[in-house]
């Protein structure tokens, strides 16, 4: 990613509803290149819903959400500028880690690293040709997170990224996120355990 390129995610008074029930209301957020925001709050308050709404999986009831890039020539929709790693890892148990990542790479387009390089960064190169179904929960998680590295997308939406990761892998992920921010990326994470990166914007979802 080009360091000079500035990207902004602007959310104004966003609300999300399922049928008649308002799930989230009045969310405002401004996130620019190099910044990370952490969404915190008790279980069931709508952290995942917020992330899924930003990813476009969930229709927005009202409010505005916009994505601004300095190089306006490339006006790809927001869905093509973001990575979403949720509770479900999007990996096929019957396929190997390499096959899963190759599919992810082709799916999302514009590859930066090979599956081997990405897994190597996650310190998981030894499972490259194992079916994902044989891996532990933490290893699966790391394979899913390796998807962040194979395709370059500026906005990362991470839903509980530290789940199932051991202490070492947590540190590894923090370093990777820091590197992403350093190269002009944006990160929005829903998490109970703070990633502890400097300059984190806190988004607290509390009493509705």
């Amino acid at each position: 990613m080009d360091k000079t390129q500035q990207s902004h995610l602007l959310i104004e008074d966003l609300s999300v509803a399922r049928g008649e029930r308002i799930l989230l209301g009045g969310i405002s957020l401004r996130l620019s290149s190099g910044q990370i925001a952490e969404v915190t709050g008790p279980n069931g308050v709508g952290k995942s819903t917020l992330l899924r709404a930003i990813a476009g999986f969930f229709p927005v009831r009202s409010g505005r959400m916009s994505w601004v890039e300095s190089e306006a020539a490339d006006s790809a929709p927001l869905a093509e500028r973001l990575h979403y790693i949720g509770h479900l890892d999007g990996l096929k148990s019957a396929l190997t880690a390499r096959e899963n990542l190759e599919i992810g790479l082709r799916f999302l387009g514009r590859d930066r690293r090979t599956p081997l390089q990405a897994l190597d960064r996650m310190e998981l190169a030894h499972v490259l040709d194992l079916p994902v179904g044989y891996l532990s929960a933490g290893q699966r998680r790391r394979v899913a997170l390796a998807r962040l590295l194979i395709v370059d997308r500026p906005l990362w939406l991470l839903d509980e990224p530290l789940t199932a990761l051991d202490r070492h892998a947590c540190a590894l992920l923090k370093a990777i996120v820091a590197g992403h921010l350093g190269s002009g990326g944006l990160t929005l994470a829903a998490t109970h355990e703070p990633l502890g990166l400097p300059g984190t914007i806190q988004v607290r979802l509390g009493t509705r």
């Binding site: 973001l82 999007g90 148990s93």
Partner: peptide, 13 residues
């Protein structure tokens, strides 16, 4: 849908 691959399809160009 069950394993989250569908979400990734939404993000595909």
């Amino acid at each position: 849908q069950e394993d989250g691959s569908l979400d990734q399809m939404f993000l595909s160009p």
